[in-house]
Design a protein around this nucleic acid. Structure first.
Lengths: 110, 110
DNA sequence: TGACATACTGTGCGAAATACAGTATAACGT
DNA sequence: ACGTTATACTGTATTTCGCACAGTATGTCA
């Protein structure tokens, strides 16, 4: 596995991770919980990638957060907003369109 | 269509466009030709996005280029390399995995 | 008591998408 | 003949992302 490989593989995260987070946040979750969930799905994400993404999504009001201090450690729960749902729909549509194009063009090569 | 929308939609290009270019370059093509092709597929790409991407792919030896000066205007033809094919396979596999995860998680919301 | 898991924040770097500007030729309509 | 549009590419500056790395703090378990 050369360095070039990881370089290009990394780029595959950007769009996908946005959508993935917006999808799972239909149900309220906190950062560390998502990291575990993604790992179970066979998709490892770095803490230093997810946490800034969550803050960014909140900054643009696609998600809302509230601290839960009732348990052992304080946890910051995130949940998708109405705006987030609207944008998620658009992003999922883009994804499907891209998937359609890719499947059609690459079926002879796979 | 707010500004936030485009901001997040933009991120959807990155991984996809890499793969798309590597797929179509199984057949030799030049930049402007790809722009037209993508447009026909319903997927508009900016010149200022595609050209730097092609240079980058060449820099990392995923594609090779040669100038064709026989026609009216000089055209820079690109074609995928062996290294490019190897990496394309990995990226396509990542795409499929991501698509699988997304379809499973979001089927109840779509 | 010392390592590991949990749970988050903050800073800095390299690289990518795009805007914008520029170069140059060919095809076209008027 | 002349201006506009299409063709075909290069180069620079800006913004923002992914991630490495560092740091803070509490809980669990050998």
């Amino acid at each position: 596995m050369s360095d070039t490989d990881t370089k290009f593989e990394t780029e595959m995260n950007r769009g996908f991770l946005q959508v993935l987070v917006l999808v799972v946040l239909e149900e309220a979750m906190y950062g560390y919980m998502m990291l575990r969930k993604f790992e179970q799905l066979g998709y490892k994400v770095e803490e230093s990638t997810l946490y800034p993404l969550l803050r960014r999504l909140e900054k643009y009001e696609l998600v809302e957060s509230k601290w839960d201090v009732s348990a052992d450690r304080p946890k910051k729960f995130y949940e998708i907003s109405e705006k987030g749902r609207r944008i998620r729909q658009k992003l999922l549509k883009i994804w499907q369109q891209q998937d359609f194009i890719l499947k059609n063009l690459s079926q002879e090569d796979i």
